[in-house]
């Protein structure tokens, strides 16, 4: 399973997005606001989930804000951190 596929699965299962399937999530769709409709509590949850499932820590807002824009950006962040 690719990083993007794993992220989508986590989004649906761990954030209980019962009205959408992982396959329906677009790679470049915004995670927050008009896109997937996540909110600030989801952001906190996502920080925990990324560390738990990928072993990658999002240390602060400076890292988190660009990383949590979309599945694309989050996958790129995780893959970049994993290479370090």
């Amino acid at each position: 399973m690719s990083t993007k596929e794993k992220i989508k699965k986590i989004l649906v299962e761990e954030l209980n997005l019962e009205d959408i399937t992982p396959e329906e999530i677009m790679d470049d769709a915004p995670l927050f606001g008009d896109g997937l409709g996540l909110d600030s509590l989801d952001a906190v949850e996502l920080v925990v989930l990324v560390q738990k499932h990928f072993g990658v820590e999002i240390k602060d807002m400076d890292e988190g804000r660009p990383a949590l824009q979309s599945v694309d950006s989050l996958a790129a962040f995780i893959e970049a951190k994993s290479r370090l």
């Binding site: 509590l41 906190v44 949850e45 925990v48 560390q51 738990k52």
Partner: peptide
């Protein structure tokens, strides 16, 4: 199991 740094804020709330 996972430690307090992995505690889910949604579960807590």
């Amino acid at each position: 199991v996972d430690g307090d740094s992995f505690a889910s804020p949604t579960l807590f709330s």
